[in-house]
Amino acid sequence: MIWKTIKVGFHRLGSPASFYRFSTLVSPWLWAGFALCTAIGIYYALYVVPPDYQQSDSFRILYVHVPSAWQAMAGYVVMSILAAIALIWRIRMTEIMAMMCAPIGAAFTAICLATGSIWGRPMWGTWWEWDARLTSMLVLLFIYLGIMGLYAAFDDRRKGARVACILILVGLVNIPIIHFSVEWWTTLHQGKTIRIFGESSMHYSMMPPLIWMTIAVKLMFGAALLDRSRNELLTQDRRKGWVQKKLKSQGVS
């Protein structure tokens, strides 16, 4: 029964007009949640959490760096699932959403690399080193940019999306490499601090902002994905009946 409702819901979302309605309704709430969580997270990160025993206040940049890194990778997994659905079922809406994941993921990857670099200069003594973690993360950025470029290179949007979806699935191999790079090889980058199973090597007093910021970027990813997909859909369908009708009802012609 519940399964059926979910299934019908997904099928509905596949139709452009209902996706438009759904995303218009949901994305403002996601943005609001993002703003709230970020405000709480930043306040905790800058004013409540104690300084680190070795790095003092410099470590606070991790509250931006770590959630961005996680989201850059989680966003890629989401994009891959959408790409697989798009390739197998040829649902247009998932093609569009998969394509729209790329610029958001690229932005998070860039934030991760920039904040890591800024932290690395005083702490490690270098802006950049070609170790396995840093290099694989840079490769992730290039894959994201490649997907965007490939999609844009085709005049036929659907064809471009399908080709780019294949590239997405090829690039998926990089995600476990990034994740395990600090365990498989000796790297300059430190190992895992936060563990889902077992104890984390971070004192509990430093955890709350990390949790708030992680939720915040997840909401932001969702909101940006819905907004971008809606815009792309409107651009592609601008001459179609349902868009024209929408425009007329809002007094634009």
């Binding site: 104690p50 300084p51 680190d52 025993y53 070795q54 790095q55 470590f59 991790l62 702490m123 490690w124 430190q190 190992g191 895992k192 601090t193 090597s201 971070m202 004192h203 007093s205 430093m206």
Partner: peptide
């Protein structure tokens, strides 16, 4: 840097 973070 190791992966440990704690207050002084």
């Amino acid at each position: 840097h190791d992966e440990t973070y704690m207050p002084p």
